[in-house]
């Protein structure tokens, strides 16, 4: 399963709920305001780092660039472009969009 999260972890509990339901081996792609969860040194960095032991975490590059935070991404998070987003959607049998 590919999970996408588009809400800031500071504003909504979307990511927390997503991670609680993401099975080991699934992928989580952070998009739009969700990319703020991909950053180091924040109050949510530890939660995401711990999740990476079980799931693959990706962040959408254009959304990081727009927000001026591309240089703060946590080690272990793979940054993808729109084509990479499409590849992830193809690789996984289903996509769940957490809103």
């Amino acid at each position: 399963m590919l999970h996408t999260v588009n809400k800031s972890p500071f504003e909504r509990n979307t990511l927390k709920t997503c991670l609680a339901h993401a099975k080991p081996g699934s992928a989580v792609l952070l998009i739009e305001d969700g990319v703020y969860a991909a950053l180091s040194g924040t109050a949510h960095s530890d939660m995401v780092t711990q999740a990476m032991a079980q799931v693959s975490v990706y962040a959408l590059g254009p959304d990081l660039d727009a927000r001026g935070v591309a240089n703060r991404v946590l080690n272990g998070i793979k940054v993808v472009d729109y084509a990479g987003f499409v590849d992830l959607a193809i690789e996984h049998p289903a996509t769940q969009s957490w809103l």
């Binding site: 703020y36 590059g61 254009p62 959304d63 660039d65 727009a66 927000r67 001026g68 935070v69 591309a70 240089n71 472009d81 729109y82």
Partner: peptide, 12 residues
Amino acid sequence: YELTKGQSTKGL
């Protein structure tokens, strides 16, 4: 976050 340096929205 509205005030962060280096914002670049070309990709969006």
